[in-house]
Structures are given as C-alpha cells and as structure tokens.
C-alpha cells in the first residue's frame, strides 16, 4: 500500500513535471528560434537594402563589383554563417561567400527548388527554410520597377542551434528528474508516517489472530487494540471459539452414538480384547 500510494504520487508529479518541461522547452525553442531568425532576417534585409541601392542606381546585379566584399563583411559578424549567396532571376549564383567551416564539414549544396521559393516570394518578408544541416533565410531582390531580379540566401550552421536546444532540454529534464526523486522521497516518508498507525492497527489484529489460530483454546485476546477492526476481531474470535466448542460437542455426540451403535473403534477393540 505504502509503495502503491507513493508510486501514484510520483506518477502524478512526473506528469506535472513532464508537462512543465514540455511547456518551458517549447517556449524556449520558440523564443530561441525567434531571436535567431529575426537576427538573421535583419542581416539579410540589410544586405538586400545595400544591394537594392545599387539596383536603384541602374546597376545590373552581376555588375556590382563590391558585392563580394559586402557579403564577407556581413558574414564576419557571426562565425556560424556558412554561406551567403546572391543569385539572378534564372537562379544562377552570381556572388557567394563561403565559410572555411564548409571545407571541413561540407553541406548539401543549394538546390534550385530553394532558390525558386525565394524568387517566387511576392512580399519583402524574409523566407525561412531549413534542412537537416542548415537554417536558411532568403529574400528576393526587387528593382525600383517592382520586378524581381534575383535573390539572396544566407545559410546558417544548424549544429550550433540544435546543440543549444538539446543542451537546454537535457538541463530541464535533469532538473525535473532531480525534483522528482526528491519529491518521491518526501512522499514516501510522509505516506509512511501518515499510515503508520493504520499499519500498526492491522499488525496488532494480525498478531492477535495468528496467536488465536495457534492456540485456539485460550480466551479471546484483548490486546488487538481499540479500533473497530480490533473489536470485530475479538468478537469473531469469541464466535469461533463458540463454534469450536460446538464442534467438540458434536464430536462427543458422534462418539456416543458410535458407542451406542457398537461401532466405536475403542469399544470394538476392547470387546475384541475381552474375547
């Protein structure tokens, strides 16, 4: 009983902690993603503004000579930026910054489908795409006639992002487990204290009944305690003794009847001995 009640309380606390971890982690994930995405979006928007300034002056995207330097300068702000690519409306890469990290850990190259998603975007809001290795933020380049003339995509190292999330989840789960263990121990101790007297009562009644079963001739035991259960046990013992007395009486009656019928084993033996 003690274990079952404690286990129930533990399950309840685990349920509560599980939900709390889930909610806190979900909040963290959303906030973390929000901060990261808005930062990268801001970077990409700033790049777009710079490049569109050139477009507004009538320059062709392919002819903007300082683009590579601008990309390198922006990428220098964060070592986890893997690449920044500027492409034209046909999806051909015109300029690209690539981090040295890519030489060590190459990632899947940009696919035409992703470039198409960026080019198809009607609004100036950055598009967020992700693959197993990178987070991508893309935005179309629109000239002052409102025509999409290309786009740019920034790829960010996902391992850093995933590692942060995993670390936080791990920390939350570890804390929840520690709290669960502590709460379970407190529950076990409290339940033990709370039901100590009940167990004591039951044990007393058990001892009295065991004693009675071993030595049924003794008078009904008064030491079973003063609970309802103990009083009933004493009454049951008395009634059992009464029934046992009746069984003894029945045995005697049978014995007498057997003797009367001349069937009693001792009587026959004796008769046989006499013969």
């Amino acid at each position: 009983m003690l274990v079952k009640i404690t286990a129930t309380i533990t399950v309840l606390i685990a349920f509560v902690l599980g939900l709390a971890v889930l909610m806190n982690y979900a909040k963290f994930e959303r906030t973390f993603n929000g901060l990261m995405q808005s930062r990268l979006a801001f970077l990409v928007q700033d790049l777009r503004d710079t490049l569109e300034f050139g477009l507004d002056l009538g320059l062709d995207p392919a002819a903007m000579a300082n683009t590579a330097a601008i990309l390198t300068r922006e990428a220098a702000q964060d070592p986890h930026i893997l690449s920044i690519s500027v492409f034209n409306e046909q999806g051909r890469i015109l300029y690209q910054y690539q981090s040295k990290l890519l030489d060590l850990h190459p990632v899947i190259p940009l696919t035409p489908a992703w470039l198409e998603i960026v080019l198809q975007t009607a609004s100036k809001t950055p598009q967020h795409i992700s693959d197993p290795e990178t987070l991508m933020v893309g935005i179309p380049l629109i000239n002052n006639f409102g025509r999409t003339v290309g786009g740019l995509i920034l790829r960010y190292d996902r391992s850093f992002h995933d590692q942060e999330l995993q670390q936080t989840l791990f920390n939350l789960i570890r804390a929840a487990l520690l709290i669960l263990i502590a709460a379970s121990l407190v529950a076990l101790l409290s339940v033990w204290l709370l039901f100590r007297s009940t167990r004591h009562e039951l044990r007393q009644v058990c001892i009295a009944l065991e004693d009675f079963l071993e030595n049924q001739q003794r008078p009904a035991s008064p030491h079973a305690g003063d609970s309802v259960l103990a009083a009933l046990e004493v009454a049951a013992e008395q009634k059992s003794q009464e029934f046992q007395q009746r069984l003894i009486l029945a045995g005697r009656i049978l014995h007498l009847e057997q003797r009367l019928a001349g069937q009693a084993p001792h009587g026959s033996e004796r008769r046989r001995e006499g013969v």
């Binding site: 606390i13 902690l17 709390a20 909040k27 906030t31 973390f32 942060e164 939350l172 709290i179």
Partner: peptide, 21 residues
C-alpha cells in the same frame, strides 16, 4: 508536492532560459 515541483522546475527553467537566451 505538486506545487513545490512546479515552483522548482519553473524557477530552474527561468534561470536556464536566461542563461541560454
């Protein structure tokens, strides 16, 4: 125990989230 557990995990989450965010 439920209140204590909820308070404990919320407090820890606040600190852990602050550290990461």
């Amino acid at each position: 125990l439920i209140i204590a557990a909820l308070a404990g995990i919320s407090l820890y989450a606040a600190l852990a989230l602050e550290r990461s965010l």
